[in-house]
Design a binder for these strands. Structure first.
Lengths: 201, 201
DNA sequence: CACTTTTTAGCACGATCGTTCGCTTGAAGG
DNA sequence: CCTTCAAGCGAACGATCGTGCTAAAAAGTG
């Protein structure tokens, strides 16, 4: 007979992964422990562990989950917006929104800091995700060039780098310092960036 | 008899602190363990622990040490440069150099990610350090305004935020992605920032 | 209903965590 | 030479880490 599309195990695995992603976004991917995760989900340590073959596998799946969330929340909606500057603006707004909400955004930021000097599968995965995302950003910007919104000699990679910096500075000011002016400054910096990249009328 | 200016205990405490700062800049402040630190310094766990009343105290002292290093390597040399844009440029160059070398720079970045959602003494200390540094940056920029190098209506806080973003993006690209183009992009972004802030001739 | 497979809990393991305590040691002071 | 004292070590503590093994409970299937 056909097995049900999602077994019970898969369902709880997803639920645990959700909790894990939320916890890891607060205390970091390396700081996530199986014991605390079990307590937080009301499961036994061993029962929970059975779903993940190792801690590294758990971390890897958490990272994959965060990536999904980020794509759903930020990248996909941006791609649904009209090509050109509008799409780039949408990307920024969604990204900013995700940064304010916490979740996947913070996870990538803190994980990048934790694993930038520790070779291994997790680091590799992190690098791939970052490169993929940068590529998406560059593509959106490049589309803006061919649409005539941005200057033809603008550097897409430089743009991706710059907007990434704006977001990182925003998250630090917002989450660590609790600075209420952070969002406004991020918007202002992004506007300047766009103004510099805009095609001369 | 006069006791020697620095007792033996103080000397080893400083040595341990040096090792601790270096380790913490690689694996994070929270990931630093007393056992590994003892092994790395060739001391016994208890002998080492005797110098610090608790792990939190150790972390706090490591943070203070990193702050000193950063001030010595970045802030002080900048203040020794001529007032105005030259000084701001010197700050950026030193900051970039410290970021490439690793050490204290990375520690603050990763620690900010680890403690941004974990209230306590460490987080408070981290916030104070960041605010202090931002204040220094703003002051240097403000001096540039009164020297006539920068536009009078430029926003010092916004400038500090923006250059912070450039450095964060650089460190991510340099340390996590190993991107050799990172430094050039950081310089380019900084030049654009300066160009926008410069007083009209 | 019985039966099979999947999912979970209980328990235990070696290692390591932060921390305490008592002891040895080597140098300084009288 | 004897005393004193800072400095460091060794052993041990309770807790928790990641990870297996086994049995019970639950879910799915006929």
């Amino acid at each position: 007979m056909l097995k049900s599309v999602v077994g019970k195990g898969e369902a709880t695995r997803q639920a645990v992964l959700d909790s894990a992603t939320e916890i890891a976004s607060r205390i970091g991917l390396a700081g996530l422990t199986i014991g605390s995760l079990a307590t937080h989900t009301g499961m036994s340590k061993s029962g929970l562990f059975a779903h993940f073959q190792s801690k590294e596998s758990l971390q890897s799946q958490v990272l994959a989950r965060a990536r999904e969330q980020f794509v759903d929340l930020v990248v996909r909606p941006a791609l649904a917006a009209p090509r050109g500057e509008t799409r780039v603006r949408e990307l920024f707004e969604r990204w900013l929104g995700a940064g304010k909400a916490g979740a996947s955004c913070c996870l990538f930021v803190s994980a990048a800091g934790e694993y930038d000097d520790q070779p291994g599968a997790i680091r590799d995965q992190l690098v791939r995700d970052h490169l993929d995302f940068f590529e998406s950003v560059e593509l959106m910007f490049r589309t803006g060039i061919s649409e005539g919104d941005f200057r033809a000699d603008a550097d897409p990679a430089q743009f991706a780098h710059d907007v990434h910096g704006i977001m990182l500075a925003f998250m630090h000011a917002h989450r660590l310092l609790g600075d209420p002016a952070a969002e406004g400054r991020a918007r202002r910096a992004f506007d300047s960036l766009l103004a510099a990249a805009r095609a001369p009328k």
